[in-house]
Design a protein around this nucleic acid. Structure first.
Lengths: 230, 230, 230, 230
DNA sequence: AATGAATGAGGGTTCATTCAT
DNA sequence: AATGAATGAACCCTCATTCAT
């Protein structure tokens, strides 16, 4: 009986349509200024139907965010898959994350949400769980990469791969946020190009993680960052 | 005429009273859940009066935040003043920032506000300017410290002090945010102590910015971080 | 053809299942706070099916109420059947009605519904008719009892049995409602036990209905109420 | 300084205006079907202003109801004041209550509200208190009347004035409710005039509470009820 | 007969802000 | 300068009912 399957498929499709509409609205207005009315209108559905598929506005927001994390995860998988070594992969991850930031700035903005302690409460535990599961997957990717590098001898044996991942990712993220908000200001007032700082920071960090041997052979790679200097 | 001066003084005092009330309310409820009604009540003033002194709720929020930045700045001045060398000062800054984070968590939470792009629009340019001025002062402190270190030969000559400040501060900040939100989760799921990561991250970046000579002589200082390992 | 009969039987059974679910939900939440969703879930049926059997939520509510009236009717039949004389039966009816009130408080609450003029409109005429038919049956029981008493000479010849029934039942009902809502308040503020008032009221009324002869012989019965005085 | 007083007066006036509007809407639609929008519109005020004066729709409803109780109370005071003796006054109270029922049917309908257990929760304790205070005052009037009658020897010494008040008032009320809802039905199906029943019921209860002496002298008064028979 | 997805019209309440006094 | 009454625009979510399948 394909009837049940078709129903399922249609339902899933409906979920996607709602998500598309929500994404468009959230991108344009942000969480607070978006209304369920507008999302419903964009989805060409009634407001009530929205609540048939998602428990609250916040849940819907998180569902869109998960899409962003999916995208990010895919990107990470691709980058790691097409990179030769852990160090190279790590460096490329930094580059790709910047591309993600530029290309999917809206998703990047949504990620802020997870930092706002006030809003955590309004989200259903299930959705929160789904979101965490997704980010965990990506964290694991990076952590495993560090682990592999350590085993292969390109990263120092005395580093903890989880800690390294946290430090790398956090510092990268933090600088991107600054770029997002204050890029102009730093350029004008202090003549500093934050984008360059982003890459320098990544390079600096990677260098300090690497063993001496690895450092020698990958010097050329990391010197990329220098060539970006005007 | 002392009359005008007295008026001025009273006015300033009134501004402070309002700020005290606003701070108490914002600390307890966050920006969204705070109401001008509650602030007015706590200030024992009418709601209308609030608007004579501050243009909007967001402005008021920013004004409180500036207090936090003041506090942070003072702390930085103290730390730098009482530290022997740039490297030592830098390390102590990291420690003090953590203390600030623990002691003034409410102010730290407010700082999130500056990262939310949506809300930037709701703030008056004047207040934003005042806020930036305050943070600039603190940035300058750190930048100058790097500059001094470079001149003294403890920091590498090839680093840009501004960039170094951005990298160090951003990564520190980012990890503290993670501690704030996800400390338990990382502990339970991956057995990682994010507080330790915070200090390791600071140490790591400092090390990689130091000259070899400095590294040797300050090794003992940075090894503090190791002693925290259980 | 047993087929048609079986279908009929199944249909009736389904109606009962729905009624069971509705009763449980209405008892727990009252009319307003009950939702067809919850009833459908409890009945393990779809919401649409509910509407195949009952025209509206209010109709369903009335159908449950009819069950309560059934119960009440049965009780009346039993009491009258097991009582010796009209006066005794009348007195016992009062006692049993109080028991019903205590034991089936939820049904008693539902009966309020019939008093709310606003809600009358939302009920289908058919269901209203069914409900009235049920209450009429019980009314007839009481009226006939009065009639019998008059014929037997225990109740005064100059009373109208219908009027007597209305007065007795209404006053009893009204005091029970007061017990339901304000029992504590009367106890605390005026030290009056409304339950006692209920029985006194019944006794008072019956006395005034009886002929002198009957009054003499039944004095002992009605004096029950006095023994409840502390 | 009359300025403050004038403000107070205007505020009180505003409360009245809101009450007028609310009364009109509640009378027309009942509690559930009335909307704050409509009340605001009728009051020519913004919806927000309504909430400046009354905490909720239910509070507003209760405030209107208190007006009804006021009216009823006044009526009772008048009737008692202009009646010769407690028995006469009691009888006249019954007559006046019927007039109230006819003239202020809408208020009478509102009184149902107090019987609905579900809705009690939605009302602010203050307003509930005000409402109870008002009804208590009226109860006291009736209770005192019985007390006086007992002292004067027209009511039996063995009756409790409070109980008597409850019995009389409750039964009267209950029959009026029946008149409100089912007057036609009883007329058509059983040829019973419920209005007559109402007066007979009052007469009956009064008689049974009177002393023999009083009964003799007031026979003519109570025989009024007979003259109403067609 | 049964489903259950879709509807869509609300509806009470909140609050930042204004402005006459 | 200070008040505080008034505003009014928003907004999320509910739920009885319908109807195509």
């Amino acid at each position: 009986m394909g009837i049940h399957e078709r129903k399922e498929r249609e339902k899933e499709q409906r979920r996607e349509e709602i998500l598309n509409a929500a994404q468009a609205v959230f991108f344009e207005r942000g969480l607070q200024n978006s209304t369920m009315d507008e999302i419903a209108e964009k989805a060409e559905l009634s407001k009530g139907t929205l609540y048939l598929y998602y428990g609250s506005k916040e849940d819907l927001y998180l569902a869109v965010m998960v899409r962003g994390f999916d995208l990010l995860h895919e990107m990470c998988v691709d980058v790691i898959g097409s990179s030769g070594s852990p160090v190279e992969a790590m460096w490329n991850l930094g580059k790709s994350y910047y591309e993600f930031f530029e290309k999917h700035r809206n998703f990047f903005h949504m990620f802020y949400f997870l930092q706002s302690p006030t809003l955590h409460k309004q989200v259903s535990p299930d959705m929160m769980e789904a979101c965490n599961a997704q980010t965990n997957k990506t964290w694991k990717l990076v952590i495993d990469l560090f682990q592999r590098g350590i085993e292969e001898g390109t990263f120092r044996k005395d580093i903890n791969p989880i800690e390294a991942a946290v430090i790398l990712w956090s510092s990268a993220n933090s600088i991107l946020i600054r770029i997002d908000n204050e890029c102009e200001r730093w350029k004008e007032q202090l003549n500093v190009d934050l984008v360059q700082v982003y890459f320098r920071s990544n390079a600096l960090f990677l260098e300090s993680m690497m063993t001496k041997d690895a450092y020698t052979s990958y010097a050329s790679l990391l010197s990329e960052v220098q060539t970006q200097t005007p």
